[in-house]
Design a protein around this nucleic acid. Structure first.
Lengths: 340, 340
DNA sequence: CTACGTTTGTGAAACATTTCAACCCCACGA
DNA sequence: TCGTGGGGTTGAAATGTTTCACAAACGTAG
């Protein structure tokens, strides 16, 4: 109040009648200072309302206490769950987490990374717009610990944490076939997204293995993985001639599935009787949908947690080796695909 | 690569054959340095891959370039939309945004604030667990710019940005009465949340003004504002004797409304014919629900943006005065409350 | 040719912390 | 008594910027 400047170690030292080195010791290695002086210093800190200046600490120590996650799409709850997992791991390691959102724009992504570099964050987790972007390789060259989340790189030039999307596609289709469906739509796109390709690939693989005619697995491409695109896919589905119309749809993510569900119910379809639906991700709202949504669950928090552990290993362990972690997704069956 | 240490201004200065003060000038006031040397310095920076050390900058300059938002509940998309608004304003002011999540736990909240204080952030935006918490008052006393978002304080001891919840309650009920409903449930809780109280108050006010019997506005309390609680409220609703059973429900937020909708549809109710539903917040998923949800829209991004502007004013304008901003929410009518 | 103003560049101080070699003091063993 | 060891504390250096008073260079007017 009276003294506007915020107190520094020097002020604390003066107030406690010790040297400033001792104050630092109280904070960083309390065991070397005698109980009596430690207490005195702590009292002085409390009285002055001392708060350690993190910039100065970081400048001298050379190491920051923050991690960063650059997420791809803030409107998709999936990424917030991943972030939550990272946050938990960061908390355990006594680190702060910077969350940025690129909104799927490479230019925002690059701006964020630049900022983070200036902050000298300990490590960066990212779900990139494009995992091959040159500025991502620059990071590695600079020695910044980097983990790619929910995407992969073909070469193994950095750590990554992802989910076996081919397998995810397989279990979704296996489930639908088990439920008696013989004509199924795959809804998703654009194909430039690796995940979409792989989920489709898994679907096709198992469809062929089961000896079903390729024509009866209908690919309905979309322009994005959003609720609106799901609705529009639903309209296209309804437009198909009855004998071609699938009895079930497997959507590349839950947002699409929710859009499809909404469009279907609005058009008077009964789900799952007229149309069974399976989504992907198992976001919170999947279970909360009007007809609870069957979905392929990704271990979202686990994904984040594991990624954080990898980045920490890279940051602290001198003989760290890059790893490509792979989680296996599993099907969560709910009403939207109940047996016919 | 070869030289592991990341280059500093000093290295750049040496490489460009100028003093380090000049390098600083190139970054901070390019107009005072001649075109020739500026270019030389810039080339040296690029060659060395120089990245300014933000801690050092901050230490010397005494001011950080970050804002922080401590959100209340990461599982509610509402807060992410608010954060998005803040982010946009921060971007305009060339600031970074730290996003923290207290998960409705005061202890996490306090830990986050402590961190942020150490980082010397320029200002803090927060949707607090409790706007009267003593540690929030401490912040103000310390002179940290603070804005309370989506909550208020009775005294006007800091800036806040909120929505007129009483009005929101009024328009929701007016709408339902217009649609011909004469027995309506208010679903929400706990009452310790100011918003819940005020939305209920608005509902009761207008109900009385319209001359409807108080008994026909039924208060169904919940333990939280979640989808699960919405479902359970739906069960309680179904348990009411038919002549007491309301024909419409006004939920204190969209998550409750979605839960209620799910339970209702599952139990075979037709929405809106058997039960009309109005939510609050108008989150993305409201429009995407099986029956698109009528909701009272809060200007979520605007809320964040305005809050950011207030905090910046407090941080930079010496004769800043605390303001309590108030937005007026508006009803967005959709299928879940279509005329009967 | 001098005095002066303007433009451009310099160098040292300052910011708040951590770290580390050095120092003091005291107890203890010889 | 002296020497030794060790617990506790100190003081100064170092971290990478920014800022600011000042110096150098260069025109230009008188």
């Amino acid at each position: 109040m009276l003294n506007s400047r915020t107190p520094s170690v020097k002020d604390v030292a003066a107030a406690a009648g010790v040297s400033l080195g001792t104050v630092s010791n109280v904070m960083n290695r309390p065991e070397v200072v005698s109980a009596r002086t430690r207490e005195r210093v702590e009292r002085a800190m409390a009285e002055l309302g001392f708060v350690r200046n993190e910039s100065a600490r970081q400048l001298r120590a050379g190491t920051s206490r923050t991690l960063a996650y650059v997420m791809l799409d803030g409107t998709n709850p999936f990424f917030h769950d991943v972030a939550q997992g990272i946050e938990l791991a960061a908390e355990d390691a006594d680190l702060s987490l910077f969350i940025c959102n690129s909104n799927s724009r490479a230019e925002r992504e690059e701006a964020h990374l630049d900022r983070l570099l200036q902050q000298r964050v300990q490590g960066i987790l990212i779900t990139p717009v494009n995992s091959e972007a040159p500025y991502l390789y620059d990071l590695t060259r600079r020695g910044v610990p980097l983990v790619i989340v929910d995407r992969r790189r073909d070469d193994e030039s950095c750590c990554s944490v992802a989910v076996d999307d081919v397998h995810g596609g397989r279990v979704a289709i296996e489930h639908l076939v088990e439920q008696g469906h013989a004509r199924v739509a795959f809804i998703g796109g654009p194909e430039s997204i690796g995940q979409v390709r792989e989920r489709l690939q898994g679907a096709r693989e198992v469809w062929a293995e089961l000896g079903l005619p390729a024509d009866d697995l209908i690919f309905l491409p979309t322009d994005a993985l959003t609720v609106a695109e799901g609705r529009s896919a639903g309209e296209r589905l309804a437009g198909l001639p009855a004998r071609r119309r699938p009895t079930a749809a497997f959507c590349a993510n839950d947002l699409l599935a929710l859009g499809l569900l909404q469009q279907g119910i609005g058009a008077g379809l009964r789900v799952p009787d007229d149309l069974a639906i399976v989504g992907f991700d198992d976001i919170e709202f999947a279970a909360a949908a009007a007809v609870p949504l069957t979905s392929v669950r990704q271990p979202r928090q686990e994904l984040g947690r594991a990624a954080a552990q990898l980045v920490l290993d890279e940051a602290t362990n001198p003989d760290h080796e890059h790893q490509q972690l792979f989680f296996t997704p599993e099907l969560v069956a709910r009403a939207s695909s109940r047996a016919r």
